[in-house]
Computed example of a mutant assay.
Amino acid sequence: MALWQTTTLVFGSVSAGGQLEKDNPALRPCKLCGENKNLCNSHIIPKAFFRRIKDGDPQLYRVTVDSDPIARSSNGDEIQRLLCFECEQFFQRTYEDYGTELFINQKNICENEDFVFITRFQYEKYYLFIISILWRASVSTLKNFREIHSLISANKILNPCLRLQTLNISLKNNIRLDDFIKISATRIIDPQDNIPQSVIDGVMSGLSFGRGNSPEEGVHYYFMVDGYIILINLYPPNSPTLKNWHPKCAIKDRTYLKIPKIPYYEIKEVKEGMAALAQARAPEPKRGRGKQ
């Protein structure tokens, strides 16, 4: 079974527009603090990621990878009024300023043929940054995230952790988010150098969803940015899969990250998505004149 069912890849640049919710001056409850305020247009995937694939073109390519991958031109990402200005600024200062720069801050990065190493890693801050993206998708009503909306039931757990900047769900029972929500990262490469690393780094994917063969195997969400795939795994507390979850790509609570490199063509959805993007960007063949 494929780890995820559909993949949305975007390549190129994005305009400031996107899927934007219509203006509504009425006060609404902020999804984070709960107060009735004027809400900002919040990016589900942080807009800092989209800035990095801008190249003077107001369009990007969006690829849905299923049985027949197709690349289509698109003009933006998913945006909705979710947070008040204060909470939007809190998310940016607390999580996004760190999380969106982690994979491009070269002074903290070294690598060899098999791994990328990132030093001065702030585990809890980065973990909550990833959770904040998943949380935004779950509390939105955008149709692209309908498979994630079921997580709204976990808002009573995720919301306080994000507001209080903690992984602790219950200090009394010593329960933490990372006891059952596991995050991993892999570096996507082309060992044959047919695709430049800069091209791979310029491919993004929106949040995608997959489900295990049984409830014990959990549900999985992932996205790709800056040449890395981030996978979020949610397991039932007593799952045998959870007890045996020890992949080498796991993000661990320590001061450095050790991220394995994986060829893009070993991941079916990424391979097919890259092929669809290449086909979409290829110039159309010139047509010769027919005989008179």
Rank of each mutant, 00 (worst) to 15 (best):
I229H: 03
I230P: 01
I230G: 01
I232L: 06
I232T: 08
I232Q: 03
N233T: 04
N233E: 07
L234M: 13
L234R: 06
Y235P: 00
Y235G: 00
Y235N: 01
Y235I: 01
P236H: 15
P236F: 13
P237L: 09
P237D: 07
P237H: 07
P237I: 10
P237Y: 09
P237K: 11
N238G: 11
N238Y: 14
S239P: 03
S239G: 09
P240S: 10
P240I: 10
P240K: 09
P240L: 08
T241H: 15
T241N: 13
L242C: 07
L242I: 11
L242N: 05
N244S: 15
N244M: 11
W245T: 05
W245E: 02
P247S: 05
P247Q: 06
K248R: 12
K248F: 06
K248L: 05
K248G: 02
K248N: 11
K248Y: 05
C249W: 07
A250C: 02
A250K: 01
A250L: 06
A250Q: 07
I251G: 00
I251N: 00
K252S: 11
K252F: 02
R254G: 09
R254P: 03
R254Y: 06
R254T: 13
T255I: 06
T255R: 08
T255D: 14
T255Y: 09
Y256I: 05
L257G: 01
L257Y: 01
L257W: 00
K258T: 02
K258Y: 01
I259R: 00
P260R: 03
P260F: 00
P260N: 07
K261R: 07
I262S: 01
I262L: 04
I262M: 03
I262H: 00
P263E: 02
Y264H: 12
Y264E: 04
Y264R: 05
Y264N: 03
Y264P: 03
Y265R: 11
Y265F: 15
E266F: 03
E266K: 10
E266W: 03
E266C: 06
I267S: 05
I267R: 09
K268C: 05
K268W: 10
E269M: 08
E269T: 12
V270A: 06
K271S: 10
K271G: 01
E272H: 12
E272A: 10
G273F: 05
M274H: 06
A276H: 03
A276L: 07
A276K: 04
A276V: 03
A276W: 02
L277P: 04
A278Q: 15
A278R: 14
A278H: 13
Q279R: 14
Q279P: 01
A280T: 08
A280C: 04
A280M: 05
A280H: 08
R281P: 02
P283M: 08
P283Y: 09
P283S: 10
P283N: 14
P283V: 09
P283C: 10
P283K: 15
E284L: 15
E284M: 12
E284C: 07
K286F: 15
K286C: 11
R287A: 14
G288N: 11
R289S: 15
R289P: 10
R289F: 15
